[in-house]
Amino acid sequence: MKDMDKVAHRLAFLEGASFSPEDLESIVKEIEDNERIVGELEEFSQGTPWISLQAQPHEKKA
């Protein structure tokens, strides 16, 4: 229950889908681990420019 409380704000994104307790446990675990992954990638990408897509159409040539 404690783990689910920690990620309750994320579980709200699941739009009411109700998984079994076992499935929910596995989802929660992975969500928490994803937080660790994002932290590492944030560290790794320090100093790298943010990506921006061009809004205007442009020719792409091979």
């Binding site: 994803n34 994002v38 990638l41 790794f44 990408s45 790298t48 420019p49 943010w50 990506i51």
Partner: peptide
């Protein structure tokens, strides 16, 4: 978070 991941991808 997705945008942070894309920044890593760019690196």
């Amino acid at each position: 978070e997705y945008l942070t991941v894309q920044r890593a991808r760019h690196r």
